[in-house]
């Protein structure tokens, strides 16, 4: 069953076309990593899915329903980001109790155990927490709500390395115990690469890739060799990145399409696999040359 179905989705915010003709589906009980650069449209997409924002055109179905103003979607989904502001009248433990009242699947035990593991003070006020603590608390709400569609938008903002690791581990364990559809966005692909099953690469409001993680790892290949040979050899291939050094050697990233690798080796081209995070950067980088170009 598909939890999210999206066909030709457009979202215009002000004059910006934040989502451009998106078509994709997200299957039930998967963890999808939403990867993209700043302003690529990750947050916009999640907010539209959560029913906070209204789509401009196209169709969007979450649990087979249009999410805007839909209670069914609202009760079965949760959207967690670092902008969550709680009313300062409520203490942290009171917020947890309120969340419990609203979310039918709420896991009280999990919430309280995480709460004490991350050593929160029940009488604290959310507004007074540090950035990292706020994110951690929000993440607890996201996890314990056990919503069929759980969305984390940059959940680790401000967390230190140890807490990040703990959070991802908690997410994975809880997901295994209670499979559900999870969307998680992050700048740090390498952090979630072991966690996510599917990757959803978005840039300028368009889908660049939506693949299972295993396929994505094989998506591209790096070629290193003399510039002329590499260029000639890759002439009809899709080049994602290319860098030439002073020794007239070129490093090139090309889409992996059944290469005659033996032939390449004979020509003196070294092949290498590309890490997921590098690949994400190459894919989402519209400028072929990168930041170095600025300083030339």
């Amino acid at each position: 069953m598909n939890v999210i179905e999206c066909d030709g989705l457009n979202k215009i915010r002000g004059k910006v076309n934040a989502l451009h003709n998106l078509s994709f589906t997200i299957k039930e009980d998967t963890i999808t990593g939403l990867i993209g650069r700043n302003g690529a449209g990750k947050t916009t997409l999640m907010k539209v899915i959560a029913g906070m924002w209204r789509e401009t055109s196209g169709t969007l179905r979450v649990f087979n329903k249009q999410p805007f103003n839909n209670l069914f979607v609202s009760v079965n989904s949760i959207y967690i980001d670092d902008q969550l502001r709680f009313n300062s009248s409520l203490t942290l433990s009171e917020i947890l109790k309120e969340a419990e009242r609203f979310y039918p699947n709420w896991d009280t035990t999990l919430a309280l155990r995480l709460f004490s593991y991350f050593s929160f003070n029940p009488k604290d006020i959310h507004e007074n927490l540090s950035k990292g603590k706020k994110s951690t608390f929000n993440a607890i709400i996201g996890l314990a709500s056990h919503c069929a569609l759980t969305m984390f938008d940059e959940p680790t903002t401000g967390m230190d390395a140890a807490v990040r690791k703990d959070f991802y581990r908690a997410l994975l364990k809880d997901y295994l115990n209670n499979p559900r559809t999870i969307l998680i966005s992050s700048h740090h692909v390498d952090e979630i690469e072991d966690l996510i099953e599917d990757i959803f690469l978005i840039e300028r409001g368009e889908v660049l890739a939506h693949l299972p993680m295993d396929e994505f790892k094989e998506y591209a290949i790096g070629l290193t060799g003399r510039t002329e040979i590499v260029s000639q050899w890759s002439s009809n291939k899709k080049v994602l990145y290319q860098k030439t050094n002073e020794m007239n050697r070129t490093f090139m990233v090309v889409k992996n399409e059944a290469f005659p690798l033996e032939q390449a080796k004979r020509l003196g081209i070294e092949t290498s696999s590309i890490s997921v995070s590098d690949l994400a950067i190459y894919l989402t980088n519209q400028r072929k040359e990168g930041i170095d170009n600025v300083f030339k």
Partner: peptide
Amino acid sequence: MSLNKVRLGKL
């Protein structure tokens, strides 16, 4: 994860 319904009045 099981899906839940919520009635407007209750909410």
